[in-house]
Every structure is written in structure tokens, then in C-alpha cells.
């Protein structure tokens, strides 16, 4: 598995990070370095090993169905770069 410029562009697009064309090759090289290093994991036999996503061993705690939050538009918009009439405002989205 080797990352090329096209893959870098694709990942950058998925991650919504602008990567200038001239940086793509350098990033590809870096990622390949890291990926070939983590390939070391292939030495480990993980047949019949359950993936471990969380170490707590507990199940999900649940809360009761009460309205305990909301109605705090000042907090919600406290740091907003642009808003109007209580809405967040972004460049127009075309569907």
C-alpha cells in the first residue's frame, strides 16, 4: 500500500484541508514513511482477536428523558464568526 499524490489529494479533500499541489508529494512521502512503519503490526497474529474499541468494560450509561439544556442562544453564538437573526451564516451551499 503506497500513498501517491492522487491519494493525498483525495485524503485532503475528505479531511477538508487545502494542500497545495507542490506539497502533495512531500506529504505522500511522509505518510508512506509512517504507514510502512505501522505495517509492522502485520507481524502480529490477530486471528480470533476481538477489536478493543474502549477499555472501560462498562456499558453505555443512559440519562432520563428530561429537557435540561438548550434555550441558551447567547452561549451558542458567543464565538460565532458570522450570524444573522440567530442563524449561523456560511457561504451559500448549492445542493
Amino acid at each position: 500500500m503506497s500513498v501517491d499524490k492522487t491519494t493525498v489529494a483525495k485524503i485532503a479533500r475528505l479531511a477538508r484541508i487545502h494542500v497545495p499541489d507542490e506539497r502533495q508529494q512531500a506529504i505522500a512521502t511522509e505518510l508512506n514513511g509512517i504507514l510502512s512503519w505501522v505495517d509492522e503490526l502485520n507481524e502480529v497474529n490477530t486471528d480470533n482477536v476481538e477489536p478493543l474499541a474502549n477499555v472501560t468494560g462498562h456499558s453505555l450509561p443512559m440519562r432520563d428523558d428530561f429537557v435540561t439544556d438548550g434555550d441558551r442562544i447567547d452561549d451558542v453564538l458567543a464565538n460565532v464568526p458570522e450570524s444573522a437573526g440567530g442563524f449561523f451564516v456560511v457561504p451559500k451551499v448549492v445542493e
Partner: peptide, 9 residues
């Protein structure tokens, strides 16, 4: 709501 913006709720 706006010619060049989208509003988010």
C-alpha cells in the same frame, strides 16, 4: 434567505 449565504439552524 440571502443571495450568497446559507443560514444554519
Amino acid at each position: 434567505q440571502h443571495p450568497s449565504k446559507s443560514y444554519i439552524d
